[in-house]
Amino acid sequence: MEYFMSYANLGVALFLLISMAMMLGRLLLGPTLYDRLLAVNSFGTKTVLFLCVFCLVIDRPDGVDIALLYALMNFIATIAVLKFFRYRALDVSLLESHITDRDGAAE
């Protein structure tokens, strides 16, 4: 049973690898930059999943820490990219800009 499980995990890891390759294709071909942004985000999620599965494959639980770090980093990078699109600067308080956006004559 254990023998089977290790091969099952390896198969899952391979499938994740294939789906990462498909994300890569969307990233390269993507006509708009929104497609690319979504592809990058999804690619990061796939990497997190892959790391978790791979830690089961090689039987070393250390990698789950890296998976956690990846999840956080992925989020930070996506937020930074979206802020860059919207405000053309990275040092913008999201709360204040939201208020001034709602009614332009605020302040």
């Binding site: 990462m20 690619f43 990061g44 990497t47 892959f50 790391l51 791979f54 830690c55 090689i58 070393r60 250390d62 990698g63 820490d65 890296i66 770090l69 990846y70 956080l72 980093m73 992925n74 930070i76 990078a77 930074a80 990219v81 990275l90």
Partner: peptide
């Protein structure tokens, strides 16, 4: 991201940790 996952697969977990923090997070910003 890919190279950090590859480092994990090569059993270099600490290098992968640094790569994920610096390469994927800080340098993108």
């Amino acid at each position: 991201l890919v190279s950090a996952a590859w480092f994990v697969s090569l059993d270099a977990v600490d290098v992968a940790f640094t790569e994920a923090a610096v390469g994927a997070g800080v340098s993108t910003v």
